[in-house]
Nucleic acid binder design. Structure first.
Lengths: 344, 344
DNA sequence: AGTATAAACCAAAACGTTTTGGTTGTCAAT
DNA sequence: ATTGACAACCAAAACGTTTTGGTTTATACT
């Protein structure tokens, strides 16, 4: 059924070499032969066997992306956006995208090794960095092209794009303080994630600068899920001295917080201020719409992918490190009528 | 750097054949040799070259999914959900997922051909079927395993999962009629899409059964986007005799309809009823929450992928054709206080 | 002693490309 | 008649596996 160079060679009476070179437009093949080869190739419906091609060329023209998900969390909107950005950029550059999921842990590096050494991918996109990220250490050590969304606590000698989470949370702190809040709670992200650290730090700094005391009891851990936000918010709100504002480490948890508040008869926006982080598409349509920090996830996905492809091609990177300034998106979940300003 | 069978063969003093067979646990290799080979393989950090393996085995253990998107519409929530389902199922079965985007048209089939004949994938998932779907004709003709989300107008001699769109829209018709609506508009999906046809047919049937006259002027075309819904709704609402209810062919357009209505000072739910179709995650959180028809996209993605993998493995399919009954999810966009019933 | 059986091993072919390092034939310049 | 240059072509090696179809050696049975 599927034809090979050999078939074309037989049909044209030329050698396999010549056929190959004809199809690749080498100039040591006569125009006449080229035409013949192309015609026969067309006739036979020839398509090169990419596996063979790649085996020989030591290139797969494929970028890898392994989503660090637990269970079926593939559908996390954050990952969907990343995936969209990476996928579109890869397609535009003529690269395929190989997607896989693998929970953080023991077997994780094995999957990276397998894909890299198995020549399935030419490079990797790494997302959702941990403070000490073994994936990055491995890739760095192995000398494989990779580009990262996020930073680590270690040496930043790799190409990355990240948002300035410290700045983002400072904006939140200022916003909440400006609305008069003094008892501000924070549901953080898991502390091994680098962005969790930045965001927590930003809140601390922001409040400190404004001279607002920070109650350590109100700083609690979260797991990034809606359910987790719901549960932690419940605990915070049931305290004898509940906070008047709850900031969260990501939008999904903020949605959970709003549910918990509403269940207790509180009106989000007047009785309780809630903020998120990320500005996933849902945030705009939540009830009430969520005040949050916007980072252009889709765009970041594109950019990281573009960096990776440049790296793979051996081109010079314009910028090795990109840190984007996020902006505060004021909606209704903190009660202030959103001013019609465009974010800085 | 990356080691091969040859390296192991040299180190152990055995032949490449024996090493290969040892690693694959053939029983014509002595236990002692197996142990030796495994130890050395470990030492050298051997990982098989998947390209070579696949070239030889004529299998890629990869399923392909090409999203038929125009421009950067990768982020359509519908596709995200599908992708999540397919991706998780594939990962669970030990398959890789190769994702690509390609707008419908000329070049589309070429991409399928290339991936199939290039041995990049063992089979395809086809989504968002057209009435006459060339992709399906090609795959059928080429004898390549594939499984489909959706149906076509032609012979249904391929494995698919689909929702009963006719039934779904009949539920909508009944619901709207039950609320007293008589002037009902519909913003349809592009008519070459099979599901568009089903949904339109369902609405027609439903209204006919209830004896409600159907004004052809109120049946308009849509493009599935929020913007498209917004524009068409604007035109409908600016008529001298506007409808009291606007049903739509998908949720995204319904969101656009609500914006258009609200911009005109109408209260969605009392002044105008709006319905969607799909029940994407956004629907629950829209403002007001959207009454829509629920189809379990994520689950369908999983199931289609499972079917494909069974097909690839040559296993018997339990069911060749699966048609799921959707259910109406009553929220606030039609005004009725949502009864606390569980959908049928 | 000769023959069958089994255990352990291996050389070579195959998968379908690309690349290397040629060869052959023609023509023009010496 | 050589020489050199050039155009057009190709055989064989290479990529890293798996599979085919063996061979060799030891052991057990007549």
């Amino acid at each position: 059924m599927s034809s090979t160079l050999k078939d074309i060679a037989q049909r044209t009476g030329k050698s396999i070499t010549t056929v190959s070179r004809a199809l690749n437009d080498y100039d040591d093949v006569s125009p006449k032969t080229k035409a013949l080869v192309h015609r026969v190739a067309e006739e036979l419906g020839y398509t090169p066997n990419l596996l063979a091609q790649r085996l020989q060329k030591h290139r797969s023209d494929t970028v890898g992306l392994i989503l660090p998900t637990f269970g079926p969390r593939f559908s996390d909107p954050f990952f969907s956006e990343i995936l969209a950005g990476v996928g579109n950029q890869a397609a535009e550059c003529g690269y395929d995208l190989l997607v896989s999921t693998q929970a953080p842990g023991e077997k994780e590096l094995e999957v990276y090794r397998q894909k890299v050494q198995g020549r399935q991918v030419d490079g990797f996109i790494v997302v959702r960095t941990r403070c000490h990220d073994l994936r990055i250490e491995y890739l760095r050590g192995a000398g494989i092209p990779f580009a990262v969304f996020g930073r680590t606590a270690g040496k930043l000698d790799f190409p990355f794009v990240d948002e300035d989470g410290v700045y983002g949370m400072r904006l939140v702190a200022e916003h909440l303080a400006g609305l008069g809040h003094r008892r501000i709670a924070f549901i953080a992200a898991p502390p091994d994630l680098m962005f969790a650290r930045h965001r927590l730090e930003g809140l601390r700094e922001g409040l400190a600068m404004l001279g607002i005391p920070l109650d350590e009891d109100l700083m609690v851990g979260g797991d990034l899920t809606q359910k987790g936000g719901y549960e932690q918010a419940g605990r915070l709100l049931d305290r004898p001295d509940p906070p008047t504002a709850i900031a969260t480490g990501n939008d999904l948890m903020a949605l959970g917080v709003m549910s918990a508040a509403q269940e207790r008869g509180l009106v989000v926006g007047s009785d309780l201020a809630v903020t998120g982080f990320d500005d996933i598409p849902l945030a705009e349509h939540s009830h009430p719409p969520l005040t949050t920090v916007r980072q252009p996830i889709y765009q970041i996905g594109r950019q990281v992918c573009r960096m990776l492809i440049q790296l793979i091609r051996g081109e010079e990177l314009e910028q090795q490190h990109v840190i984007l300034q996020p902006s505060l998106v004021v909606r209704r979940s903190c009660g202030s009528t959103p001013p019609q300003m465009s974010p800085l």
